[in-house]
Design a binder for these strands. Sequence first.
DNA 1: CACGCCAATTGATAATTCTCAAGGATTATC
DNA 2: GATAATCCTTGAGAATTATCAATTGGCGTG
Lengths: 234, 234
Amino acid sequence: MDSKQIDNVWKHGKKCEQCAIRNLVLFADLDKNDFDLIHRPINEFELAVGETLYNQGDCSDFIFTLRSGLIKLVSYLADGSVRIVRIIKKGDVVGLEALDNKHYLHHAVVLEEAAFCRIPVSQIKELNERSPHLSKQLTARWQRVIFDADVWLSQLSSGFAKQRVAYLLLYLSDGNDDGECYLPTREDIGAMLAMTTETASRVIADFKRKGFIKLVSAHQLIINKESLNELCES
Amino acid sequence: MDSKQIDNVWKHGKKCEQCAIRNLVLFADLDKNDFDLIHRPINEFELAVGETLYNQGDCSDFIFTLRSGLIKLVSYLADGSVRIVRIIKKGDVVGLEALDNKHYLHHAVVLEEAAFCRIPVSQIKELNERSPHLSKQLTARWQRVIFDADVWLSQLSSGFAKQRVAYLLLYLSDGNDDGECYLPTREDIGAMLAMTTETASRVIADFKRKGFIKLVSAHQLIINKESLNELCES
DNA sequence: CACGCCAATTGATAATTCTCAAGGATTATC
DNA sequence: GATAATCCTTGAGAATTATCAATTGGCGTG
């Protein structure tokens, strides 16, 4: 969907079904001019799998909306190992810490080919002064992030490897009714769920054998939500 | 420290060394009147170990400042088990989700005898409208919570039981240079660090044998920070 | 003081996961 | 198409932790 279409959608007061931006409740209450301010086609760009959006410590001049794809936020631990602390999904925002931090707090790396819109922090701040809406939405957003993190923490710290992987796949497929799901590398699964790549591999192999998942391509699969849900509960 | 003293401290532009409220950067930029608005002696109260400040789903009419003691925020998992998702320490705020949520998101239970000041959400909101400071401080606070949660997640999901317990004790003793530290029940340690009470007990016993910790009373101990730090790194 | 209750401890065994290692599959590059 | 590089898979044994079970110790109540 190009910018003209978005413009059109906006004019007609109808939300775009295809464009990830529509999910950004954050910007839902902006008027036409303000929306144009933050969403300019010239600020759109894409990154391939494995590319870095920003590194921890980089100057945080932009926040990003994720129009499509998947991002991982990673931290390096003292012992050199890697932990994925959060997954950013299509329609969400990346790098919000820029709003009161001069530097990004994590490494943001592309997990699944991603399209972004880059928004200068200065513009957000300007908007924030003018619009009480945005400030309110931002607060709501922080809370949502915190609560999601709490849920994630609870899940991560409970159950066997199988259950955690099942939960991850359900989480990744959330929103896709057909059960389509991106399958990360075994290493990434390990970094997300606190297990070794070998364990991740064995669990995936087991799920394949049992028919809980079916590979469509190397990193795309269809999951059987009922089976996985059942596994999570048990 | 009673309200007259606080009043006095405030007038003299000096921060109170005893009162936990002084740590609340959140309210640092308020003027005298605004401070009085949120901090009234009549709103102070205490709770004993095990008592509940609020339950998940309760109407969230107040936020609370923790003047002394320790609070745990707990979630019940699908299988009925309990996870402690966050620890609130002296000088921090509890229940901030009240600001844009009609209900509390967790159960808040007293871990170590606690003294609170209760602040009506309506007053915070009123203040928020008037003072751009507070709004800014709040944003900074959300971020801090999120970042802390990320660090906690990383620690929780890495290393052996011994290392996680060592990390917890260092975390709890943070700020006390003498290494004084509250020791939670084995069950609570388990709920925080994703291990069984038996494992928690064994680790504590091991630490005692090795001289990493020394019990002062049933739930109070002195830790050897160097030893525990070393253990965390290894 | 005896009693019950709850938290903590300790032991033996089982289950899960990690570690180390080797081989297979896939993808990228020239 | 050949080669290298990377990721994935699989196996066997070791290490960590969970589970089950029994006991101890502390604490308040009658």
